[in-house]
Amino acid sequence: MSGATNREAVFPTRQSLGIMKSKLKGAQTGHDLLKRKSEALTKRFREITRRIDEAKRKMGRVMQIAAFSLAEVTYAVGGDIGYQVQESAKSARFRVRTKQENVSGVFLPAFESYTTEGNNDFGLTGLGKGGQQVQRCRETYARAVETLVELASLQTAFVILDEVIKVVNRRVNAIEHVIIPRTENTIKYINSELDELDREEFFRLKKVQNKKQRDTAIQDAEMRAKREDAEKRDKDKENEETGGGGDILGDDEDADVIF
């Protein structure tokens, strides 16, 4: 994981450092939220799988009872009613509708069974004999189908949740293992670049300062030299002046005045 490859292509500026920092913060918040969502969904998912297991066993029993009651009908009617039933089926009395349930932002559809009133395709089945058994069989099967519908909703929820959990987990992992490290790398890169720039700038300033100091030292030296020069000249002048002035009374040999 070299810093050069696993980071975003940005210019190392303070502005992009700010952007990256807020991005990292956003990624962490998103990661937390998604993780929580995934946990909630998984909890639900486990509950559903447990209920599926139960419902499947229950279905086994219910279907057995239903099959038995159908055998009773066959016995009572004294013949096979299968053909007759198949031919007289026209419109479904037993139907399902779907409703939705919201689990952490995921819509889980659930089936709900209902019977439409008024149409009875099998009014004549078992008219001769065994009508009672037929009636009982219908009730038993209706109950069995209700169990099946319940199981079907669980199973649908299972399939959808399975898919959603996979997607959410993939996102969680992507954020955790790709986006966050990359953003951190980018921040590190920008920081090091900025530090480098800082050092350069410091060095440059140092250089400038040195140069200035040197310059002023030279100037100072020049000034001092000049001043000393001047002073010396002043002194010379003074000396000259005192010399030049002489003493008026002077030891200078005046020429003898000859009258």
């Binding site: 239903a66 099959a67 009651s69 159908l70 096979d80 009613i81 299968g82 039933v85 198949q86 089926a89 026209k90 419109s91 479904a92 009395r93 037993f94 139907r95 399902v96 509708r97 779907t98 559809p109 019977t115 395709d121 099998f122 089945t125 037929v134 069989c137 219908r138 099967y141 209706a142 069995a144 189908v145 099946l148 519908v149």
Partner: peptide
């Protein structure tokens, strides 16, 4: 799924007969 309101069945004769008696048959 909002229009899905029927059950369908692929089964042996007894299963189909029983489920049709429950009223799921639709033509």
């Amino acid at each position: 799924y909002k229009d899905r309101q029927f059950l369908a069945v692929i089964g042996d004769e007894d299963s189909v007969t029983g489920l049709l008696l429950a009223g799921i048959g639709h033509v």
